[in-house]
């Protein structure tokens, strides 16, 4: 149980997927303009990450490892993720339009999101057990959402700022991201000592 907690909290705080591992920056910068779109994206990414892990881990352990095809994991994982995301989008669009209205538009964005594939591959390289990798995916998703929401709050403040012409738009957002990731440094070392 302690192991799980360490994985979860470190994925959320210490090596946060966006601010320290640098995965999923494109949606992080693109979607955090409004708080509700950030929340929507966060939930969608967490959902896809967990489901992707549920799909890819068994495929890896049952199909690829017995036949020594570990090197094919990238191809198979990304195929599964793309398939899964498109399926969810189609189903949502048809049967749950309001949810699609809120979340659906982010789903295609998620297929090209480095964080989702990153989590599945990380589970393999870190040799997590099945339960641990699901927890890791959950932690990664929550970490992503927290970073997104935190950054959405900062960007609300950015609307009032007036940086010089060349810095307005994306450059000033990136500098704010730099400061936010600086603050996350404070958590380094907290996880290990917190759980003894």
């Amino acid at each position: 149980m302690r192991e799980m907690m360490i994985i979860l909290v470190s994925a959320v705080l210490v090596d946060n997927f966006v601010l320290t591992k640098f995965m999923g920056i494109c949606p992080f910068l693109g979607v955090s303009k409004k708080v509700d779109s950030a929340a929507g994206m966060g939930v969608a990414v967490t959902f896809v990450m967990v489901m992707a892990t549920l799909c890819t881990y068994p495929v890896y352990t049952l199909l690829l490892v017995p036949f020594g095809l570990q090197y094919l994991n990238t191809v198979s994982f990304i195929l599964i993720i793309a398939l899964f995301v498109q399926l969810v989008e189609i189903i949502l669009r048809r049967f749950v339009p309001p949810l699609y209205q809120a979340l659906g538009i982010y789903l295609p964005l998620i297929t090209t999101n480095c964080a989702v594939l990153g989590v599945t591959l990380l589970n393999i390289t870190e040799e997590y057990t099945f339960a641990q990798s699901v927890v890791n995916a959950l932690g990664a998703g929550i970490g992503f959402t927290i970073a997104l929401l935190l950054f959405a709050g900062v960007r609300r403040r950015l609307e009032a700022a007036n940086p010089p012409k060349p810095f307005s738009g994306m450059p000033i957002t990136l500098i704010s991201a730099a400061i936010v990731s600086l603050s996350f440094l404070g958590f380094s070392g907290v996880v290990e000592n917190l759980f003894g």
Partner: peptide, 13 residues
């Protein structure tokens, strides 16, 4: 599996 699922789904829904 992927091809079938996808094309069916995109048509049906």
């Amino acid at each position: 599996f992927a091809g079938l699922l996808l094309s069916l789904a995109s048509k049906l829904f």
